Amino acid sequence: MNAIDNGKNQENDISLGLLLDMLAGIKDAPLVFYYDGQPVKSGYHITEVKAGQFAGLDCGANPETWSEIFIQLWDVEENDRKHMATGKFCAIVRRVTEHVRLDASARLTFEVSDGVRPMQLYCATMPVLRAGAVHVALSPRPASCKPRDRWLAEENKKAVVCCGPSAAGSACCA
């Protein structure tokens, strides 16, 4: 299994710009998204690409702002269709940019439905090139507590600084 991004294929929440960068130069390979343990059907469509600017207040009363890009996938089977080529996916996104400003660094969310089940939100992992196709795993986008997430990130940063290579005279991990 070859990761297009040099092995970081487990990283979630990639941006649109990063996804497009990873797909550059692989225009003829089929692009297969996976969600709920299954690949999308070969006739899937991109039914909508939209960009949003959001502002809110988190559960700790902290103001939050962010940009997000949503790509809606309609997971349907169509006669004689193969999975969309990466070049076509990139061309669709480029076409959208002619009408809508897309921030390449914005959070990327996939909205997926088969037209029967309700639409669900997913984040994407890094693309993986395997057996001549580009595979992108989509995982459900969970809710989170931003104050807790920030606290955990700070604690993890402290642990790395503290328990990394110790400086002479450091009482940290003595």
Score class of each variant (00 low, 15 high):
residue 111 E to T: 10
residue 41 K to L: 00
residue 170 S to P: 02
residue 83 H to R: 10
residue 13 D to I: 11
residue 85 A to M: 11
residue 102 L to R: 00
residue 54 F to D: 00
residue 48 E to M: 04
residue 159 A to V: 09
residue 68 E to G: 00
residue 112 V to D: 00
residue 161 V to I: 12
residue 47 T to E: 01
residue 115 G to F: 00
residue 40 V to Y: 01
residue 163 C to Y: 12
residue 39 P to R: 03
residue 70 F to S: 11
residue 5 D to K: 14
residue 91 A to M: 13
residue 118 P to T: 10
residue 97 T to E: 08
residue 169 G to V: 01
residue 78 E to T: 03
residue 91 A to P: 10
residue 93 V to N: 00
residue 34 Y to I: 00
residue 97 T to R: 13
residue 167 A to Q: 14
residue 33 F to A: 05
residue 167 A to F: 06
residue 98 E to T: 00
residue 148 R to M: 10
residue 24 A to F: 08
residue 153 A to Q: 14
residue 162 C to D: 05
residue 75 D to H: 02
residue 79 N to V: 06
residue 4 I to N: 13
residue 92 I to C: 03
residue 50 K to R: 12
residue 159 A to C: 06
residue 159 A to D: 02
residue 153 A to L: 06
residue 92 I to V: 06
residue 99 H to T: 02
residue 79 N to G: 07
residue 32 V to I: 10
residue 95 R to D: 14
residue 147 P to N: 06
residue 163 C to T: 11
residue 87 G to L: 04
residue 4 I to Q: 11
residue 72 Q to I: 09
residue 170 S to Y: 05
residue 28 D to H: 12
residue 130 R to P: 10
residue 132 G to W: 00
residue 113 S to Q: 04
residue 61 A to Y: 13
residue 18 L to C: 12
residue 160 V to H: 14
residue 122 Y to E: 07
residue 23 L to F: 07
residue 57 L to K: 14
residue 154 E to C: 05
residue 86 T to N: 09
residue 18 L to Y: 13
residue 25 G to Q: 05
residue 144 S to F: 12
residue 6 N to H: 11
residue 42 S to C: 08
residue 14 I to W: 04
residue 80 D to S: 13
residue 53 Q to I: 02
residue 67 S to H: 03
residue 150 R to Y: 04
residue 155 E to T: 12
residue 128 V to F: 06
residue 76 V to F: 15
residue 151 W to Y: 15
residue 24 A to Q: 15
residue 67 S to Q: 15
residue 102 L to G: 05
residue 94 R to T: 10
residue 82 K to N: 07
residue 127 P to R: 06
residue 16 L to A: 02
residue 144 S to N: 03
residue 141 R to P: 09
residue 86 T to L: 01
residue 62 N to G: 07
residue 83 H to N: 15
residue 16 L to I: 11
residue 165 P to K: 14
residue 75 D to R: 08
residue 22 M to Y: 02
residue 69 I to K: 12
residue 84 M to G: 15
residue 43 G to W: 05
residue 58 D to A: 08
residue 2 N to L: 06
residue 169 G to Y: 02
residue 81 R to P: 01
residue 27 K to E: 11
residue 90 C to F: 09
residue 18 L to Q: 12
residue 3 A to W: 15
residue 25 G to T: 08
residue 170 S to Q: 03
residue 49 V to D: 02
residue 113 S to Y: 04
residue 44 Y to C: 06
residue 39 P to G: 05
residue 143 A to G: 02
residue 119 M to C: 11
residue 70 F to V: 04
residue 52 G to T: 00
residue 102 L to M: 04
residue 98 E to W: 07
residue 48 E to C: 00
residue 28 D to M: 04
residue 38 Q to H: 07
residue 139 S to N: 07
residue 75 D to G: 09
residue 135 H to G: 01
residue 100 V to L: 12
residue 151 W to M: 15
residue 39 P to Y: 09
residue 108 L to N: 03
residue 55 A to T: 07
residue 151 W to V: 08
residue 106 A to T: 00
residue 120 Q to L: 11
residue 62 N to W: 08
residue 66 W to M: 06
residue 62 N to A: 15
residue 64 E to S: 04
residue 174 A to P: 10
residue 113 S to M: 03
residue 69 I to Y: 06
residue 154 E to G: 07
residue 164 G to M: 11
residue 149 D to W: 05
residue 68 E to A: 06
residue 8 K to W: 13
residue 112 V to H: 02
residue 95 R to V: 10
residue 107 R to C: 03
residue 15 S to T: 07
residue 43 G to V: 01
residue 99 H to K: 05
residue 137 A to T: 09
residue 106 A to P: 09
residue 77 E to L: 09
residue 82 K to V: 03
residue 72 Q to L: 09
